[in-house]
Design a protein around this nucleic acid. Structure first.
Lengths: 222, 222
DNA sequence: CGGATACTTGATAGAGCTCAAGCTTGGTGG
DNA sequence: CCACCAAGCTTGAGCTCTATCAAGTATCCG
């Protein structure tokens, strides 16, 4: 079982280029945990004592704003590190909340121990620094997208990203989509309806198929 | 002169808790540079080969979006690290552009050398990781602010932040304010006018004084 | 079948953007 | 000292996009 943990860490987004000995030490810290769908993993404001590496399933990290709207910051699927950034500030609190969107298997690692280990190993430090820097750049892109492109563009981009080839893609609930796109469920419903009426997509029981990829690309501003 | 560089680095936001020997090594890498007001320091998309520590003056890091609007991501005053994040991704390009808002003195450090040094020294790595994590949290807060609070709130918050006591504060141009607040110059003008008419502030030749701090606090949602 | 949950849709309001015109201001050169 | 210019500021009008509220409808599950 520690071997399985090591294997996962070796492939994880944050630690992938670390030395083998570092991977083993990290694996020794890892505790597996099973999360049922809907489980609250941590809550914004709690002391950030652990970080998580997703093995299977899907976690959602989101921030709730004062007026009750939710913004999804990241979705963490297999191999993704969750709460990695918060865990690297001493005495930090989580800056967002996290719930399991599906039944998930995760590795839980103690934040302080990982921090120590990371600072001690040049290779590991480099991997984590690179990971942080990349996440930062991603966040900037996301921010710009949310601020400067309209909902048509964001939804179109999302659909294009989620639909690898022209297979159907099962939509999450409108609330979840809204949190991802930075809007409200009603608007998601309307926009999906418009796309359908304009023959850009087909919709059947929450499963989308793209009909006119070019049109979506245009809407997405690509 | 290297002593002055070391002194600055010792106090800088990113490296402040590093070991003295690390500081000396960083200082050895540092090259002073003078930037006239308005100078372009680097441009979004260029290979990120250097990072900057501000000694005196003020740098602005901003992103230009497709439709020509500008968003100021950070203002770097004395002791601030600029382009720190981009510099930590190998072969990265700058994710934003940087210009000097005032005549400035900066230290220029080679990104690759700093990266190497940082990964080698546990104390330095820890300092930088912590700095990155903090910046990440700040960025999240900023993002939420831009997404979820209205312009009144953002402008009120900005005025409160910029005016330490009830001294006057010299406004930058409306374009610069707009880039800071994520809007357009016309709206900055309108809102400032409204605040003035409602006796929240006085305005005299681009110098603001807060009259009704409580009202601004309320608008800012504090 | 009943109830909960989620989705859809209309009406309405409001914030923010754009365009365009006119106005200040500060600096420059005659 | 004044006229003039450029840059930046102000302001009105119109418009688009998004949010909100509310009512009605589908869907799922026990």
């Amino acid at each position: 079982m520690p071997e399985r943990a090591a294997q996962l860490l070796r492939l994880s987004a944050a630690f992938q280029v670390a030395r083998e000995s570092d991977v083993r030490e990290l694996a020794a810290l890892a505790r597996p945990r099973t999360l049922p769908r809907g489980a609250l993993v941590f809550r914004q404001g709690e002391p950030a004592s652990s970080l998580y590496v997703v093995e299977t399933g899907l976690l959602r990290v989101s921030r709730l704003n004062a007026s009750g709207r939710e913004l999804t910051l990241m979705l963490g699927g297999p191999r993704q590190l969750v709460a990695g950034v918060s865990a690297f500030v001493q005495d930090a609190t989580y800056s967002a909340s996290c719930t399991a969107l599906e039944d998930s298997q995760v590795l839980v690692l103690d934040a302080a121990a990982v921090r120590q280990l990371t600072c001690r190993s040049p290779a590991l430090a480099e991997a984590v620094l690179t990971y942080f820097a990349r996440r930062h750049a991603d966040l900037l892109t996301r921010m710009e997208d949310l601020l400067f492109s309209d909902l048509n563009a964001r939804l179109a981009a999302h659909l294009l990203d989620q639909t690898p080839c022209s297979d159907g893609y099962a939509l999450p609930t409108n609330s979840e989509l809204a949190a991802l796109l930075g809007t409200v469920p009603e608007l998601v419903s309307r926009k999906l309806g418009e796309f359908y009426r304009q023959r850009h997509i087909t919709l059947h029981r929450r499963s989308v198929r793209i009909l006119d990829e070019a049109a979506l690309q245009r809407l997405a501003g690509r």
